[in-house]
Design a protein around this nucleic acid. Structure first.
Length: 434
RNA sequence: GGAGGCUUCGCCUAGUCCGGUCUAUGGCGCCGCACUGCUAAUGCGGUUUGGGUUAAUCCCCAUCCCGGGUUCAAAUCCCGGAGCCUCCGCCA
């Protein structure tokens, strides 16, 4: 949630942010009114409680003769306090409900507009040219024995898949490369839970407008995460972190689950948009004043990863109307999918400033030693299924084989190419005993 | 799934049986000051978090795992829940 002091002191800034998002501007004034009401209710209840406390002491000290009268007064006050506390709770709940409905304040440099108004920042890598008819990743994957959609549907339904043979090995290779890179950059590797409590989901801002996107396990009141960001952010809920040595960075691996409600008919083919995939996610806790620089660093790590995979891509600055609830700013990296002749989102990094940490009560001590909300940032290092799809397409060859980028070879037995029908028995990490 | 134990202001801890200056004790750590050639030791003072109020200080309210209840009054009594530990059962 956003900083209430900002709303009080600079409501126009928040109104402008709401406008930029295409969200309801009047919420800001409703919030201000609710805030004033809550403060009045708090003051009334506090004052009454103070009186009651004194009265309660008086009961104890009263002589036997005056005791009945004093007790009478204390009882009356107790009843008033009860009423005042009820009013306080109501006012507080009203404020909280409004507070939760307001998304993060957008960064001033965010481009205006909606989904189609992302601004291209740069393109990197040469678009490949093919002197044969380009196949899509599913055709290539099926020929390689790497992807089995039909049986995925048989077992789990639409948008489920099996990764088999070289596909399964590719998943591990990508995960290894991602985690290895992240650890080398100073990230703490984490295997995060994929089922979380409602609190963690709410804290990261996913339950509001994205509710339809989330799998819920009713019986146990748990959610399946759509990204390990949820667990990683929740990891330090209600803690005071020591960030004096710089940002605290985690690289989390987890399965991710998405209902994809409302995307019927979109990307129905292959493993570009699926209900479940595995992902290595970067997550950073840092001082608010460092957030923008950290955001650029996350973006850079994402770019380096795609460069290692030899995938051409472009970086886009997401427009205000297309930002998630928690994000003040978001950069996507879109990689080239030859079968579509288009760039498609492969990774995404968001600066959530103090929005998530305020909800989750994640703080660090400022220069005065006072706990203050930290900034949280997240970025995809590798969304594995979609990355496999992109790799297969970009690195395809006329004979149905697929070029293996050098960076992945250590985990694919040193093979420079994946070929239909190849034997996997030789695929082992070099240096391991046979 | 069953039985028992535990949870106090950074860490440890007193207090809970028997409700009332608990405005929560003490130790460690940390910060400041004094003493000291310097350090150590010692002494004195400070040190939970959130909210309200304020120009700021002061002050006020809440906070003893969480949520209810009883009471004029709850760390303390009652009910519900969470987490941790031990044992039994089951299990990869």
């Amino acid at each position: 949630m956003i900083d209430l002091r900002l709303v009080r002191e600079n409501p126009d800034l928040v109104r402008a942010s709401q406008r930029a998002r295409g969200a309801d501007e009047s919420l800001v004034d409703a919030l201000l009114a609710a805030d004033a009401e809550r403060r009045a209710a708090v003051k009334a209840a506090d004052d009454l409680r103070g009186e009651q406390k004194a009265a309660s002491q008086a009961v104890r000290k009263a002589s036997p003769e005056e005791r009945p009268a004093v007790l009478e007064r204390a009882k009356a006050l107790a009843a008033q306090v009860k009423q005042a506390e009820e009013a306080e709770r109501t006012a507080d709940a009203a404020l909280h409900a409004l507070h939760l409905r307001i998304p993060n304040v957008v960064h001033p440099d965010v481009p205006p507009g909606g989904e189609d108004d992302a601004v291209e920042i740069r393109t990197v890598g040469e678009l490949p040219a093919y002197d044969f008819e380009v196949r899509d990743h599913l055709q290539i994957g099926e020929a390689l024995g790497a992807i089995d959609m039909e049986r995925g549907a048989k077992v789990s339904g639409a948008r489920f898949y099996f990764l088999t043979g070289p596909g399964a090995l590719l998943e591990f290779a990508l995960a290894q490369l991602a985690i290895t890179r992240a650890v080398a950059a100073g990230f703490i590797p984490v295997i995060a839970p994929a089922l979380v409590k409602p609190e963690a989901m709410e804290g990261t801002g996913f339950t509001g407008e994205h509710d339809e996107e989330i799998y819920r396990v009713e019986r146990d009141d748990l959610y399946l995460v759509g990204t390990s960001e949820v667990a990683l952010a929740g990891m330090h809920a209600r803690e005071v972190l020591d960030l004096s040595a710089g940002p605290r960075r985690y690289a989390g691996w987890s399965s991710c689950f998405r209902r994809e409600a409302g995307s019927y008919g979109k990307d129905t083919r292959g493993i570009i948009r699926v209900h479940w995939f595995d992902k290595v996610e970067m997550f950073s806790f840092c001082a608010p004043e460092e957030a923008e620089a950290e955001h650029r660093r996350l973006l850079q790590w994402e770019e380096e990863f795609l460069q290692l995979l030899e995938l051409p891509y472009r970086v886009v600055d997401i427009a205000a109307g297309d930002l998630g609830t928690s994000a003040a700013r978001k950069f996507d990296i879109e990689a080239w999918f030859p079968s579509q002749g288009a760039y498609r989102e492969l990774t995404s990094t968001s600066d959530c400033t103090t929005f998530q940490s305020r909800r989750l009560a994640i703080r660090s001590r400022d220069a005065d030693g006072k706990p203050q909300p930290v900034a949280t940032l997240n970025g995809t290092l590798c969304a594995i299924a979609r990355t496999i799809a992109c790799l297969l397409e970009v690195h395809q060859r006329a004979d149905g084989s697929v070029h293996v980028p050098a960076a992945l070879r250590p985990w694919l037995g040193g093979h420079e190419v994946l070929t239909p029908g190849m034997s996997l028995t030789a695929v082992a990490a070099p240096g391991l005993p046979a």
